[in-house]
Design a protein around this nucleic acid. Structure first.
Lengths: 344, 344
DNA sequence: GGGCGGCTGTATAACGTTGTAAATCGACGT
DNA sequence: ACGTCGATTTACAACGTTATACAGCCGCCC
């Protein structure tokens, strides 16, 4: 068996609690005593048993992070950011993936592992507000695009503004028929902030927001983007620009354009969202909205920890905006040049 | 406070242990009693406290998975496979990323969170055998490419054979100058099984294994592949094929070829490794060695659990081979056609 | 010089669960 | 009817930690 406080106490000839005090850096311990106990700790190679500590303290030191899918590099990079941010506070991260399925999201949000975790960071896709009524045995922080009016902290970039910046960029290039790829099939339209940004910016520019140029999809991967692009082209339309819900979809769309002999950006300009690494190495590099993933991860962790230490009821759930930038690359080369920045 | 066994026991008018017996499906409980206790459990919404259970049982129900980086989609997909496989056994996964830095890998392998986890699945990059001497407070399973002669289970595909299959494929296409991108800089060469496969197959075909066509890199991302490709071209060599350590590097390399006006596969054929989704949607889709990630994840989890239940010393650490296939796509279109399969 | 108060260190009781051993119960064979 | 035996249930003691309350001890003030 491993060495416990009791063993160390016996070895040092002091009480268990004194050892505990040394381990926890309790203030009132004589330097001499601290030294003596520490020597025993080192000699025996003692390390605290977290299960016991957590049982006693009611905290586990673990935060769960529930993401739709790890295959999407945006979420993978975000996960890395959360893990690092949590590590900075001595917290560790338990990873779940929901597949973006409502059932799984509900399960996770209801804390089906509530007894193991201190808090939950959830990036929902299909989750509906009513799924979240009065639960949360642990602090819950929401990430991402949906527009929830719920008593939980919510970390996101300003998706509407970011989408408008992307569409503005395309309009500045002189594009007039701008398709949107990746509206979520079967979900209430207004929830889709990026579609709303697309619509608002077109309208503001005096252009028609032609719903025939909006392609809904079931998923958000390369293949979904490719399907959507193909559907638009087969409908007889040929837009001069495409704004995709995310980078993998944009890249899938570009593949279809390539197959049909359409040149990017000459024939069709393409803008993605998330700025994943992959977009910087295709035959045509991809212009994209680049959310500050590190900030999002950090803010999410901090929000959880604030609730945790906040002794119960913090005044008001906060909606926190992270920064984003629009990074221009080859897929929208043209008149507009360089990188544009915007602050969230 | 939350409801505990004691509360349920009081509510049902029985002893704590009886409730515990019901919860744990203990054999000798009257159906009537079981029913009655269950009703109280449901009424109070009882759920076991894992910290306490684990303190008592010495198991946490958590497996740690330590990967070099989540940004690489191969590892992200592998993580998803491990999470699913663990879930099938009621285990949950704690995710770490080491950045492939030896220091971090040593830290993880030494079980710096040993008190939280029951087992560890580690995919090492820089870790050296001597770092693993006589530790393992918990079962350790190694993943991946390195060739360890150590008393730990090791799950991998046959990297040498897989690399040979890839090179064979290029040779079958008539290619004769085949570069290798992604030898690990500063590490002992023999450890690199994929380089060895490259060398062996060339030699077997009577071709020179020209070390001038091997490019070492520090990392394994798109940018590293691009750098390596650029260095080879700038050295004055122009190979007619490239075999990359992984897909991101292959894609980075293709980007450089594209920039220099070299056509894939006409001028240079390219083969990657890992078969990540991204490779299927570039302007030129990527031929790649496709490891069976689900199998690897499943086998790794099963190996950990076997040690865990194996009452201590299982006879011998096992090296388990997972399957792989070579999937041909546009980047090697030519004489050879279709998909080739190999069994690991 | 007696008492006060600030430092140190200690004994003890939890936290919620499960393993062990013992108590209870009913039925059965003699 | 009584002892026995197996099936069921219970009491109690852990698991390793920290919070609480308290016991010494010292110096210091009046």
């Amino acid at each position: 068996m491993r060495v416990s406080l009791k063993d160390v106490a016996a070895h040092a000839g002091v009480s268990i609690k004194t050892v505990s005090n040394v381990v926890n850096n309790y203030q009132h311990v004589t330097p001499a005593m601290r030294e003596r106990v520490q020597r025993s700790i080192d000699a025996l190679g003692y390390r605290p048993n977290l299960a016991a500590r957590h049982l006693r303290k009611g905290r586990t030191g673990i935060i769960a992070l529930a993401l739709p899918e790890l295959g999407n590099p945006y979420f993978a990079e975000l996960a890395a950011a959360v893990i690092d941010a949590a590590a900075a506070h001595d917290y560790i991260v338990l990873l779940d993936h929901t597949g973006g399925r409502r059932e799984q999201e509900v399960l996770v949000s209801q804390g089906f592992r509530a007894r193991v975790i201190d808090g939950l960071i959830l990036s929902p896709i299909e989750l509906e507000p009513e799924d979240l009524r009065d639960q949360a045995e642990v602090p819950l922080v929401l990430l991402g695009e949906r527009d929830y009016a719920l008593p939980y902290d919510h970390i996101a970039i300003d998706n509407v503004a970011a989408a408008r910046a992307a569409v503005r960029h395309l309009i500045d290039l002189g594009r007039r028929e701008i398709a949107f790829i990746g509206a979520r099939r079967g979900r209430s339209e207004p929830a889709q902030l990026r579609v709303r940004g697309w619509r608002e910016e077109l309208t503001a520019a005096g252009l028609p927001a032609d719903e025939g140029l909006v392609a809904a999809t079931d998923g958000w991967g390369h293949a979904d983007g490719a399907d959507a692009m193909a559907r638009i082209l087969e409908s007889g339309r040929q837009p001069d620009a495409v704004f995709a819900y995310n980078d993998p979809m944009a890249i899938g769309a570009m593949r279809v354009l390539h197959e049909r002999g359409l040149k990017v950006p000459e024939d069709i300009a393409v803008v993605g969202f998330d700025d994943v690494v992959e977009g910087r190495f295709g035959a045509v590099t991809l212009t994209s909205v680049s959310p500050d993933k590190d900030a999002i991860g950090r803010l999410a962790v901090e929000a959880v920890l604030a609730r945790l230490s906040g002794g119960g009821e913090l005044p008001e759930p906060r909606r926190v905006w992270a920064d984003y930038r629009l990074v221009q690359r080859e897929s929208t080369l043209g008149r507009a040049a360089g990188e544009r920045s915007a602050q969230g």
